[in-house]
Write a protein that binds this DNA or RNA. Sequence first.
DNA 1: AAGTGGTCTAGACCACCGC
DNA 2: CGGTGGTCTAGACCACTTA
Lengths: 256, 256
Amino acid sequence: MERQDPTPIYFRLEQEFRRRIEAGEWKLGDLFPAERELVERYGVSRMTLRQALSGLVADGLLRRERGKGTFVSGPKIHKELSSLLSFTEDMTRRGKRAGARLLDIHMEAMSPHVASGLGTDAGTPVVVVERLRLADDEPVGIEKSHLVFESCHQLLEEDLTGSLYGVLREHYRLVPIRAEERIEAGPCSRAASDRLGVRSGSPALLITRVTYASDNRPFEFVQSVYRGDRYVFHVDLAAGTGYVPQSQSLISGTTR
Amino acid sequence: MERQDPTPIYFRLEQEFRRRIEAGEWKLGDLFPAERELVERYGVSRMTLRQALSGLVADGLLRRERGKGTFVSGPKIHKELSSLLSFTEDMTRRGKRAGARLLDIHMEAMSPHVASGLGTDAGTPVVVVERLRLADDEPVGIEKSHLVFESCHQLLEEDLTGSLYGVLREHYRLVPIRAEERIEAGPCSRAASDRLGVRSGSPALLITRVTYASDNRPFEFVQSVYRGDRYVFHVDLAAGTGYVPQSQSLISGTTR
DNA sequence: AAGTGGTCTAGACCACCGC
DNA sequence: CGGTGGTCTAGACCACTTA
């Protein structure tokens, strides 16, 4: 690997392996080359090589078995792109045209409820963005987003008919890296049902979400309502993101 | 760290830091000791120390800022234990008594639908476990679990009124490490509503799940129905489990 | 300039697997 | 036994931040 490119070696290796696995270079269950072999082939240290493989293992593309080898356990089509997609990205993946109609945008002082979710002090200025979400021009949900004003001071002048996360990424370098969600099923409220075109009280997905930026700081609090008959939520759960030592995983019995 | 204990050093360090952060030894936003300082204090190499911290960063307990330091960004009460909890564990966290009533258990040949979810061949023997889930003795949901027979050949004789995952862990060394879920809101079916004690058609959370063991192999396919008025689902989403190189995260713009 | 986290090396020993 | 992944070391250079 040429060391002119400032991109970390492990990251480029991970991308290359991901591409080749998804291209079907190995079949499901095939033995992946041994670590020491790849180390020699690419001229990198074992730690670096393992760092590259770790991402693929976490994504479920590879599976390691001590004493036996590393096996290809993908590509499972949508697996590696399952978590933390914005609505726009999610819809695009499913072949639908995502859209949004701005219902309301204004600034206000942060309420205690939102503040506790964001771990900040109540009263801090926030931008509230309320949008009707569309899939192929049909309303599927309403999202009410509370953004810390300090992080996006020009947001009131932006075009928000597309991806909110896209705007945040391009103009404010705000990249969502993690989110906590509270998901429940409940009856659609009168106000929401009117705008979604469903009967009041029909089943809806109610989601509350706190989004964290790449520095692990919360920057957004969202309350959403989605039509139960039009929206399906996909998540990828992991029992702790870190490594699980093989020897202790049973003894400590932690699932975290 | 004494090297008699076979538990990996990084894992013990991670546990110690987690405990001390959760005990409130540092306040939210406090500067965490520098890596090189901890390296010296604990007599470990920097790679090992960083491996310990990485788990805490992924869990949101710590936040790293290049050139500045590592900061404590927790403890956010339930944050670190958000993902991949079994029903029993989840209820226990919330201070409720979890229970289960076995509705049905039998073996059958795997249906094509389940097989496609598990990535196996249809016709493979599976154990089907259908249970009514209780929280403080009140029914909150119905879970229908399909388990690959080969992985748990004695399951029909086990006591399944507690944690199914507990039994799988203790008796079959089957530890769930990852899961993919499909969550939607829909009307409660007639059959389910009778057993859950709600009106037929009332909002319910419908969840389909594929669970993966620690070797990254799918071993369980679950279809669940939960009462919308009694059950809330919590998830922790992450934009890719691996490390995100600081220099490239914006350029490649990947959210995965 | 000094300190921080981010990446990388070239080895090493271990536990486990299959032969 | 040799090969595999799991863990660990003792350094190194880099980019970035603060002063």
